[in-house]
Amino acid sequence: MRILKLYLHPLWNARLLLIYSFLSGFAILILAPFLMISLRSVGKGWFGKLWFPPEFTLQWFQTAIDIGNIPQVLGNTALIAAIAVAISTTIGILSGWAFGRRRLPGKEVLMAIILLPRMIPPITYALGVAKIFYGLDLVNTYLGVGLAHVSLCAPYAILVLSSTFEGLDERVLEASAVCGANTLKSFFYVILPMVLPGILASMIFTFTTSYNEFTLTLMTYGPDTVTMAVRTYLAIGEGYVEITSAMSVILVVPSLVILAMIQSGIQPEKLVGGFKGV
């Protein structure tokens, strides 16, 4: 028996070793690209077979901010995202309520239709959007780029919010009515606190979608509405790796902040969960 144990123990350890080498490989594959970008953005004279830059500098950030006009680009990005979030959350609340709490014939079919934009590659309708927006003089305006983003953001908001509203417990609403609250009071004291997390989640997801959106922006932007994603793309084309890296670092920070927020409160499964029924 003791001999058996002796043999089994290393085997067990080998299993753990295998698991952790798999996991560390995974971690390296995910993280190393970002580490290399960050090091590039602060490294100087990093040529040849060197693992780390020999000198550090902040000059690439300086150049990126001066030449790349980063403060204005960040402002554009935020403004466009705000427009997209505001419009799609409004849409999401209204139709989420209809989907989640009202009797609706053919609910599933309607939902599938509304989610269609998430199933078709954006480039296929981005062409049409660009053409229409040219005609309406919406290209190169904040509203135009923001609206283009709504096509992708709104289905997300609708999805998240209809399940939020659907999850509202009818008995709690009844209880608040029994306790003497009228519709308005019920809404502010009972419904709103209960759905607020869902609305926040929807806002965060739509913000991320708009912030990261590249295809639709590329088709509708102009000199006055360059966003971070497009600016970085242009920088890659210009070929200065260090400056591009500096821009990328600036671009990635908000994403990481949102990731931390998600981790602390919102279930990440919601990000993908909604597609299951499609």
Binding site: M36, A229, Y233, L259
Partner: peptide
């Protein structure tokens, strides 16, 4: 979750 949350461009560059 990182590849989902971070702009694809940056992933590509990295």
């Amino acid at each position: 979750l990182i590849p989902l949350m971070v702009p694809g461009l940056i992933g590509a560059l990295g």
